[in-house]
């Protein structure tokens, strides 16, 4: 990610929209077709990635479908349908809004929301650690593959994997000490700064905000 590559929806706006949309949908007991209005707009913005996004949605649905089935079994059709619809609307909203974002995008978005410095610092350092530890994870998986070792359900595999987890923990803690040193040496004063001014909002942001509000408060096309 670059700050220069403009995502269709500004991440900090996306965070607010996801929160408003999610919180409102979660409280609904009746569903309307119009609630998906914003999703169509987002889907159009992300049209090149729709296949990947839908694959993710299907994968995330396993648990939801499982719960819905147990409800259906007990003749709670309305509840099952309601749950399925609510879940998928909210999930799709998040997946569409944040597809292509990474941990750094989110940390920067948190900074732009003008939250307390301590929480933004934590997000910055967590995103950094995620990046570095994930790198270790990839290296380990490659090492296993090169050595032709496929983990199985046996003690040796479990010990190998646990040894790796142990290594990850040690490296993570070492990174935390190094980070503490960097804070001291570079004169950390409780805040991570940014040079860029407040990001100007795009027309997509405005349209998405408007459509979100319409989706939530203009009920048309009763479903259940």
């Amino acid at each position: 990610m670059d700050q220069t590559s403009h995502p269709p929806i500004t991440p900090c706006v996306a965070l607010l929209l996801a929160l408003v949309y999610g919180c409102t949908i979660a409280l609904q007991t009746h569903m309307y077709v119009s609630m998906s209005l914003i999703l169509f707009f987002l889907a159009w913005l992300k049209r090149r990635f729709l296949l990947i996004i839908f694959k993710r949605l299907v994968m995330l649905n396993t648990l939801i479908v499982f719960i819905a089935l147990t409800l259906y079994w007990q003749h709670q059709e309305h509840l099952a349908g309601l749950m399925l619809l609510r879940s998928n609307l909210m999930l799709l909203c998040i997946l569409l809004l944040f597809h292509g974002c990474n941990e750094f995008t989110i940390a920067i978005a948190m900074q732009r929301l003008a939250l307390p410095h301590k929480i933004t610092t934590l997000f910055f350092f967590t995103s950094k650690s995620i990046f570095l530890i994930r790198h270790e994870l990839v290296l380990f998986k490659n090492t296993l593959r090169i050595r032709g070792f496929t983990p199985k359900t046996d003690l040796l595999s479990y010990k190998t994997l646990a040894g790796f987890i142990g290594t990850l923990v040690i490296k993570a803690l070492e990174r935390s000490v190094a980070l503490q040193k960097a804070m001291l040496l570079r004169g950390f004063q409780g805040e991570i700064y940014t040079l860029s001014r407040r990001q100007s909002l795009s027309s997509n942001d405005a349209i998405a905000t408007l459509l979100t509000l319409i989706s939530l408060f203009w009920h048309q096309g009763y479903l259940l």
Binding site: F125, T126, S129, I133, L168, A172, L173, R175, S176, L179
Partner: peptide, 10 residues
């Protein structure tokens, strides 16, 4: 913060 952050990442 550093220790909290690295374990959050873990």
């Amino acid at each position: 913060i550093p220790k909290t952050a690295v374990l959050s990442a873990l």
